[in-house]
């Protein structure tokens, strides 16, 4: 089934954003999701609460998170503003950097307690960094702990995230096979021009396997907006809006075969803007997509732009 077939539904909170299929699972998720890091980054508790509530008002029902964000502050904020009132209305995902089964089990428990809930919709091995890492984490029992948590009803879907190199993600997909339900990886307008492209090398494999693809770094952790980068004798400018508009950058992401565009939004006003893009979205054709990618090709393989390529 094509991931672009969307369904428009309403729930007790109002109209949801268009939903897409969550990979091979019998599950539909809103095509825009709230990135957890930026909930923790928000400048105050009030702003964090506004982000969560605006997201719900705008029809977002997918919430990403990770235990390590701001040393637990981000998870704590879901525990304050999301889960107590809205847990049954949303898809909740978190991630763990645990390297052993015992650690994974303990960290899942901490995540549940911080977020004041008794169950997750998805748990991911966080930030697979090298080609050897997926094998090491699996060997040391992390995925076994995930499966046990699933048996105990603490989580429904399992997977991993990775934004450093495609070989690491491909290795994890290969090792886990049909035990991986979901994976989070970078998708943005520069990536397809990279020599090591997630969109070109990893996304098709995930689509073929029926793994739910979640996209991150749609603006390269904000670098598209913030960094004035000079390349190949082109005057320094930001990629957005210097080369492409914000709408184009995000419509491109939504036009790739992903399930959810997970976006980091540290102010409620950004949630409104992005929700509008997701609500009014219609798929770009191949020519439009190629034209957008071509306009930013000169920024390829540049870690100043794609800073996430060097975080370990």
């Amino acid at each position: 089934m094509s991931l672009f077939k969307t369904t428009v539904v309403s729930d007790r909170l109002g109209a949801c954003l268009p939903k897409r299929k969550f990979g091979r699972a019998d599950e539909w998720v809103t095509q825009l999701g709230v990135g957890g890091f930026h909930v923790g980054k928000a400048e105050s508790e009030q702003e964090a609460q506004a982000i969560v509530e605006t997201a719900l008002e705008e029809g977002i029902r997918f919430f990403d998170m990770a235990a390590e964000y701001q040393d637990g502050r981000a998870e704590h904020r879901y525990g304050e503003y999301l889960c107590p009132k809205y847990r049954d209305d949303v898809f909740l995902m978190t991630k763990t950097k645990a390297r052993t089964g015992a650690e994974a089990t303990a960290e899942i428990e901490s995540s549940l307690r911080r977020m004041r809930t008794d169950r997750l919709d998805a748990i991911l091995m966080h930030a697979i960094a090298t080609v050897d890492e997926p094998g090491e984490r699996i060997r040391d029992g992390v995925y076994e702990a995930f499966l046990k948590a699933k048996e105990q009803g603490k989580v429904r879907y399992l997977g991993f995230s990775g934004h450093l190199n495609t070989d690491a993600n491909l290795r994890a997909l290969e090792l886990l096979g049909d035990q991986v339900d979901v994976s989070l990886m970078p998708v943005n307008v520069v990536d397809p021009s990279d020599s090591d492209s997630f969109v070109k090398n990893v996304l098709p494999v995930m689509n073929k396997m029926g793994v739910a693809p979640l996209s991150m770094k749609s603006a390269a952790f904000g670098h598209f907006f913030e960094k004035e980068v000079a390349v190949e004798n082109i005057a320094a400018t930001t990629i957005v809006p210097g080369r492409v508009s914000m709408e184009e950058a995000f419509q491109y992401v939504l036009s790739t075969p992903i399930s959810v565009w997970v976006s980091g939004m540290h102010k409620a006003e950004f949630v409104k803007k992005n929700a509008e893009i997701a609500r009014n979205f219609s798929k770009l054709d191949d020519q439009q997509m190629e034209s957008i990618v071509a306009r930013v090709e000169a920024y390829r393989d540049n870690v100043e732009v794609e800073g996430y390529r060097k975080w370990g």
Binding site: D71, G72, E103, A106, E107, S110, R113
Partner: peptide, 19 residues
Amino acid sequence: LKVRRKEVATSELELSLAR
């Protein structure tokens, strides 16, 4: 550890022991 609630402190200790 830095946590805000007792029940999280309890599970965080288990995490610290595991690590």
